[in-house]
Design a protein around this nucleic acid. Sequence first.
RNA 1: GCGGACGUGGUGGAAUUGGUAGACACGCCAGACUUAGGAUCUGGUGCCGCAAGGUGUGAAGGUUCAAGUCCUUUCGUCCGUACCA
Length: 813
Amino acid sequence: MSYTPSEIETKWQNIWDDEAAFEPSSDHTLPKKYILSMFPYPSGRIHMGHVRNYAIGDALARYYRKQGYNVLHPIGWDSFGMPAENAAIKHKLHPRTWTYENIDYMRKELSALGLSFSRTREFATSDELYTRWEQQFIIEMYEKGLLYRESTTVNWCESCHTVLANEQVEEGCCWRCDNPVEQKEMPGYYLDIVRYADELLDDLDTLEGKWPSQVLTMQRNWIGKSRGLAFDFVLSKQSRELLGGHFERYEVFTTRPDTIYGVTYSALAPEHPIVTYLIEHRLLPAKTAEKITAMVNMSERDRAQADKEGYPLGITVVHPLTGEEVPVWTANFVLASYGGGAVMAVPAHDERDFEFATQYDLPIRRVIDGGKELPFTTDGVLIDSGEFTGQKSAEARAAIIAHMEAKGLGKGTTNYKLRNWGVSRQRYWGAPLPFVHCPSCGLVPEKIENLPVALPEDVEITGEGNPLESHPTWKHCTCPSCGGEATRETDTMDTFVQSSWYQLRYTLNPAKWEQEGIDREDAAYWMNVDQYIGGIEHAILHLLYARFFTKVLRDLGYHDTDEPFERLLTQGMVLMDGAKMSKSKGNTVDPDALVQKYGADTARLFTLFAAPPQKELEWNESGVEGAFRFLKKLYDRAEKVTERTLPTIDQGALDEASKYARAKVYEALQRSRDVYEKTFAFNTLIAACMEAINALDKQEDDAVWSEGMYIILHLLEPIVPHIASELSERLFDRINLSGSIPVLNEVFVQDSVTLAVTINGKRRTEITLPADADKETILATAKEAGAKWLEGMAIIKEIVVPGKLVNLVVKPS
RNA sequence: GCGGACGUGGUGGAAUUGGUAGACACGCCAGACUUAGGAUCUGGUGCCGCAAGGUGUGAAGGUUCAAGUCCUUUCGUCCGUACCA
């Protein structure tokens, strides 16, 4: 019989379905493992990145199941989002239809890979039941003050009549209609993630060694915590008068209070209220006002790339320590959203301040000794700094903060780069924000018993404006509080909200889906995710939001875990000809076609064999054939098996080739634990199995063959489950597919050993000796074998590394 | 700029605590079986050299009996980030 993957694979997929083989047990006394690969967006078809992601997760899930763990290995669909609306515009399909048809199709594609997912726990985030609980959480967050509504500046496309994410702005223009994007003040909903900044930062330490350090670093930088001094610049008397008494002072933040005596000017963001006031009251030259307005209207991205630009505002502030008057400028490099939108400028010790000061001929005053050239931005000893002169930067920072605090001039403060998460979108295909605008009560959350606030089905998606806004009836409702006429919120939630808590939803027994969002007991048992697997592209957004939601839901009393993902594996991209596979480049491989041609096992084997999971995977058709060839060989060698169980073998009676083969088999077995539990270097485990088969091929003992196949099928089942199950059923009644197999140390005991002989560290020859040879014998043999290189030399040192080598250190005698 | 990761044959990649570099696979070469083969099997394959031997993990130093592995410097590639005061 020859290897026909299609038959075998269909057969086993049906058996697993019938057996409900991958449903987790509700017995919470069992040891558990929660293995999660990031769920897919139902874009239409699966791609090789999915195959890789799920092959890794499935191997781990199957491994732990075999070890006797109760394994939760769920799948679902991250099914809200813009592509559904774009498809709706293009194909005149309802986003829901398009989405759920895609899900049905992709579910079949994933099934064909033989992935061991729980079927009963599958859900889509666009299911109304999922939305219902999400809306409840959001309302509870609102009630705790974690969610708030606020008006801020956003990217706005007038022709599409919608807000755009920064990512949707291409060179200042709308990604879809190419109209210039405007900055517009608009209300939106924000989650106060900054309130959790410290915990999100500190808990990264607990993930050290379990998450890739790169991801930890990226999150740390993203949170961007910095400590320093916040203090007020008080406007001079004339400046206050100029500003009509509307402003008296403004706050600035610095991480370098030690340089405060070097301040020679102060700069405000162009959006700063003082600047706005000056423009609105025509207190600046018309041309200057125009230029500043242009800076304000520039998108964040463009501004970041622009050259330094600024204008004097004709006002001054008083230096809090020297009493000197300092000129105030507005400058495009000052960010409105950080540290109050104003800075003290110390050109001598800050690169940006220096560049700006040089450009506009502002004074530069050195207050830190050190370095030859300015700007000198490292720590040093203070000079010309009043009573702090002579102190080192570090102590001066503390002293100046203490001094300012004592005098009521300022205080030590912490700032974050992290900004609150804007979660509202002017989109149809998302979870509605469950709020109502009441003319008398203001913003009111919907009543819990009325949830979910579901999307209307009868909408027309045109791509212009929010269909919820233009729907004739949907937004009209009664106020949950006073019962009067009111309007429903038409913004929907960012899709990242759904993916922030799905890992908790999976833990809930499906029998309780209707009654609960998250179950404390179920979550306590399953959380946290033992191994999370996904692409590095989610290093910040998704992984930060999911961590945040986990903590928030913990504080709302839904569960008790601090971190959602115990260990994280970031898989590399799948490449073809050195470039990421993409439709536009035309360098894709269709997983369906691959499975049809070679079978799912070959697809899985190749993706795990060609590279370690963390690295990029270069697609290679002949490599795929190599994987297929190995499976054919494996299938073929099943004929060699004569015993139906793990045989007992008399090691002493075997010939060298059989002993060698046994050693190779057990080496693979020994290696497997590390691979599945620690390194995920499936490529090395597969290589070890190939070596074992090659070694078995070179010997003829039936029992050794039986033992070898028994163990190799056991090892490979998580990777190539169909062929392994098929052969295992035929040969061993599947008994080798559960439990673990002990490593027999006797197989590693060798009668003779081969040692390398090196002279001065250079390998010259090798010697073979009985395994129990003593050091003298070894040295004598080595000297004899290396006589040629020892002529005329005096041996000054002899090193024997047992089982490895002999090194003789010599010099001319 | 800053932060991180990585440089090993023609290719993907192996190599516990420093201990025979190149496992395994692809490709290539030769042979066998074949009408034929892009099927299968056997053998070979880092580089230079007929060989003996030499040489070899981006480069240059260093530590060590011994370095792909540790240290210093340097070059290169990839990824992330972008005026955060």
